[in-house]
Design a protein around this nucleic acid. Structure first.
Lengths: 249, 249
DNA sequence: ACCTGAACACCGTTCAAGT
DNA sequence: ACCTGAACACCGTTCAAGT
């Protein structure tokens, strides 16, 4: 409910005009996306409505339609913006690392991104935005895997296994984080609330593992899946190399 | 819009009464869940509103609240019902298969379930229902993995890797299927519409793989990830056996 | 050229009133 | 005991009207 404080650097009402906007900035796609991200992460994915967004910016809700086709258009742009921040970090990293280390580091970064922006990640992870950030990350990954010498179908299959597992697992976690306090708590407590007290006779395995079920770490699960896939890519590379150079035996 | 035809076996207005209900059945949790599933899969996840549901059953929308706490309660019950159909098939299968074959078959079945009920799967895959079907599947999988002799933390870690990957990948695909015709088409065509026509100079890898990107099969990707995880479980089992019996070397 | 604001067709949920 | 229907506080989106 409480408005964020006014930007300290902004000049106070420097020129005549409509003077309706609370911030000095003009209404553009960029300012709308920035406000949408702020609103969604502060108050949850469900709070991202065009009326609340208009209120946040200090503009009528329908002014939005001069800059986006519809709400879906905004969601895709905002999600691509989240991915863009990740691409920025990707650019800053050592490009000389072996492919496996690069893909492992990127996966850890995707996890962090989803934890930092659960609302937008939950709204966008299953979409193909086609935006600039998505394009750059697709290009980077395809180039990284192609470098290993795998043939094109193998490159694409393993790229999709890696990318889809990453997006879907991070998205699933983000979706639970974006649930709203009451439901999130309800879901998170299920392992202790339900599975720890099942009747021993009917559910012996669940009871025997109740302590471990409550203790297992979500990030460890995610990285376990990613490592499984990286193992498989490594095996595919070795198999392909062996098949391409049969004279050495 | 068109109502399904009346049940052939139902007696026609056999006794006096309110006579408001279009079907002969009483309003129960079961009939509400069944109607919700029918409505969601016929008209999409977005069509599952309490007003449409009331219309479907022939009852005021708010009668619903005599049987469920809120809409979320219904979504969890309906998703557990979808899982229940899968558990039914699980029961009918050969229990003597090796663990890996059983887990592979279950994953294929989860894929089919998500394809058959994309709307409910998209609404529920990231939730912990704690319902009877979920409980049975958790018990079955923990027992299956524990059978291999792995210690409890390893059983739980690998169970979660397998279960989370399965749910999240099937859920992501279901979410795209549940999008509604226009958006689904927009998303599905992105690989040919956007990635196939990127500038060669900036996106050489994407262009070099555009044909393969458009052709790759989603089910193959899913099973590739599942097989990666099953490989890793197999490796963990072998490693654990070697460590438990060190006298043989 | 861009924004406003009324209007339309929806939502989930509550609650007093009915039977 | 269970259902109805008005009401409340919301949605996304369209469109004529303003400046």
């Amino acid at each position: 409910m409480a408005r964020t404080t006014a930007q300290p650097g902004a000049r106070k009402a420097p020129r005549p005009g409509p003077a309706q906007r609370t911030r000095g900035a003009a209404l553009t796609r960029e300012t709308i996306v920035a406000s949408a991200l702020e609103l969604a992460e502060r108050d949850g994915a469900a709070a991202l409505s065009l009326r609340r967004l208009g209120e946040e910016i200090g503009v009528d809700a329908t002014a939005f339609y001069r800059h986006f086709r519809d709400k879906d258009d905004l969601v895709l742009a905002a999600f691509d913006q989240v991915v863009a921040a990740q691409v920025e970090r990707l650019r800053g990293r050592d490009g000389s690392m072996p492919w496996r280390d690069r893909m492992r580091a990127l996966a850890e970064d995707t996890w962090d991104t989803a934890q930092q922006h659960p609302a937008m990640f939950a709204l966008g992870f299953y979409r193909t935005t086609g935006g600039p950030a998505e394009r750059e990350i697709v290009e980077h990954l395809l180039a990284t895997i192609a470098e290993t010498g795998l043939p094109p179908e193998q490159v694409v299959l393993h790229y999709r296994m890696y990318a889809d597992a990453q997006l879907s697992l991070c998205g699933m976690t983000a979706a639970t984080l974006a649930l709203g306090d009451a439901l999130r708590e309800k879901d998170a407590s299920a392992w202790t609330r339900i599975y720890a007290v099942l009747p021993q006779a009917e559910y012996p395995a669940a009871r025997a593992h109740s302590r471990e079920l409550a203790a297992v770490d979500e990030r460890t699960i995610f990285l376990g899946v990613i490592d499984s896939i990286l193992d498989r890519i490594e095996a595919a590379i070795e198999q392909h190399r062996a098949a391409s150079a049969p004279h050495r035996g």
